[in-house]
Structure formats: C-alpha cells, structure tokens
C-alpha cells in the first residue's frame, strides 16, 4: 500500500523550531516503521536523522513517539500504526531535541548513573566458592527487572517527569530495585533508604499513571519495582515524609487537623456527620492495616491509652 506519514523535523543549524513534513511512500507487507524511515532516508531525503541499530528490539536505540505513544519503531509494523490514514512520528517527549528524531539523553543517563546501578558484591571470590549459588525462583524475580534496555520510553511518557524533573524516574528506580532485592548485593535495602532520603523527593513523585509499565517495550514491571522500593524504604522507617506525618496525626487525633466546634456546627447544618477525635477506632484501623507499624512503629511500643484530645466533642 501507499502511505502518508508525517515526521517532525528539526535541524539545529537552520531551523528555529521543529516543524512537520509529509512523505508519501510505498509500504510493502511486513514493513516496520524503521524500514519506512530508512526508505525515506535512502530514497527521498538523506538528511532525515534518527537513531537505530539492532533492528531486533534489543538495543533500545529507536524509541520514538508514534501517534503520540512512545514505542520501538523497529518492532512495530506500519500497518498496525497507520490509523485513519495517519502516521505521525515525533521524537521522544520530556527530552531536548538534538536533530529530527534524535533527542539528548543526558538527563536520562544522569538519573540512571545516580542510583549506583551496579552490584555491590557481598562475597569475594575464593576457591571453595567461586561464584554465588542462586535459586531459579530468585532468578525469576530478577529476570524481568533486569530486562530494561534503557530506551528511555518510560521517561518520554512519564506524567510525573513532565511536571517535575526531580523525579528519579521509572528506569533508574527499577534498576535500583533490581539490585536492592538481589541477594548478592551488599547494599540491599539501604538503596531504598538512600533514595527515600534523597533531596527532591526523587522516588515519591510517581503519580502512578502506569504509562511506564504499559508502554515498556520489554514488559518490565516498573510499577512493581517502584512500589517495591517504597515498601522497602517505608518498612525501614524511611517512609515518605508526608505519609509518616499523616500516620502520626491520625494516631494522635484521628484527623489530619484539629476539628473545632464551629466546623462541626457547619457539618450538622449541611447534614454531614460530626468529626470526632475519638481515635480508638482509628488506631485499630492503623494497626490492622499495618500502616502504623510501617510508618511509626515507635507509637506502638508503650503507647498511652487513647485520651480525648482538647477540643473534642465526645
């Protein structure tokens, strides 16, 4: 079939801003979007610029936005992406464009490098035990996490990074988690604690839109990894500041703020139930859900019996 495809172009030496160019091109069956880009480059415009290498979905070079979603163009058929006569190819989002479809990945690599993405060996070699034994079950738990090929798609489509570039981001956090749960790693949980403590709230900013996991070309379970890190940090007493503070307030006064008489009057007028500071129920909930154990275990040890806080109506 013949297809029209629209490509965002930008030459830093001549263009002030990116613009779109349409190309008409013949697309035989089985043509991938990467084949299509090559055909345009070879036959129509040699200056069309994009990264690619393995063309078998393992090197991570060719992540781009196609019809608004970041994908690997080498493994995507034109026929699958050509919808209602439209195929729009743009560089990845959340990155600075270098030229056409090539973006500057330094921001991404800085995030990756910052999590110390290498094994801190627990054991050194000795003749009796030249390498670490590891069960197939542990291998299974690491396998998908280690599949990340650093293509950058999860940063391109990340809603948290779009609004706050302090967010460490899915690929780097996944890498950190991959080592944190590797029994061979000396740092282990400390990795989560460090990240939890780091300036800029690096690991807490995820808005759980799930784009990273849903768009990951390798099927890496990034959400599971980020949740895992948060759990490791929280269980070690390094929960997000807001979370710990909230549990503390709920434990002490069953509300996040002090409820006054006036507010309860207003509530009654509007037909809403009164808010109380009776925290016996709340404490039971906090214990049952494990939230207090996770956030502030100190509260449980020798905690005073519930009392009625001042201003309470009960």
């Amino acid at each position: 079939m013949e297809a029209t495809c629209t490509i965002q172009r930008f030459n830093p030496e001549t263009d002030e801003r990116p613009h779109y160019v349409d190309y008409r091109i013949d697309v035989p069956d089985g043509t991938t979007i990467l084949d299509l880009l090559h055909a345009i480059k070879d036959q129509q415009d040699g200056s069309l610029t994009f990264r690619r290498s393995c063309r078998s979905a393992i090197c991570g070079s060719c992540a781009m936005k196609v019809n608004g979603v970041t994908i690997m163009v080498c493994k995507t058929q034109v026929q699958d992406a050509y919808i209602k006569g439209k195929l729009v190819i743009e560089p990845m989002g959340n990155f600075t464009i270098i030229k056409d479809l090539v973006v500057d990945l330094r921001f991404f690599w800085d995030k990756i490098h910052a999590v110390r993405p290498y094994l801190a060996e627990r054991y050194s070699a000795d003749a009796a035990k030249p390498y670490n034994r590891m069960t197939p079950e542990v291998v299974d738990s690491l396998k998908s996490l280690a599949d990340c090929m650093f293509c950058g798609a999860c940063y391109s489509d990340c809603e948290a990074i779009r609004v706050n570039r302090n967010f460490t981001g899915p690929a780097a956090l996944t890498k950190a988690y991959r080592f944190a749960i590797d029994p061979r790693d000396r740092m282990g949980t400390d990795r989560a604690i460090e990240l939890a403590d780091s300036e800029g709230d690096g690991m807490w900013l995820c808005v759980i839109c799930q784009n990273c996991q849903d768009h990951c070309p390798q099927g890496v379970r990034t959400i599971e990894a980020m949740d895992g890190l948060k759990n490791l940090a929280t269980m070690s007493g390094q929960g997000a500041q807001g979370f710990t503070a909230a549990v503390d307030l709920l434990w002490k006064q069953a509300n996040l703020y002090e409820v006054g008489e006036f507010e309860n009057k207003m509530r009654t007028k509007r037909g809403l139930p009164e808010r109380t500071h009776n925290n016996a129920d709340m404490r039971r909930i906090l214990k049952l859900t494990g939230l207090v154990q996770a956030a502030k275990p100190a509260l449980l040890e020798g905690a005073p019996a519930p009392t009625t806080p001042k201003g309470g109506d009960s």
Binding site: S124, A125, Y131, R133, T135, P136, V139, D182, D185
Partner: peptide, 18 residues
C-alpha cells in the same frame, strides 16, 4: 564465567543453584 556471575549477571540456574 565466575567473574561475570560475581559482577551480577542473572544467569539461569539449576534447582541446586548452579
């Protein structure tokens, strides 16, 4: 091979961990 394993390669394993 041992060196690669100690560096963290996630090799597939047999049931005894080898």
């Amino acid at each position: 091979i041992y060196e690669l394993e100690r560096w963290g390669v996630v090799f597939s394993r047999t049931s005894d961990g080898s």
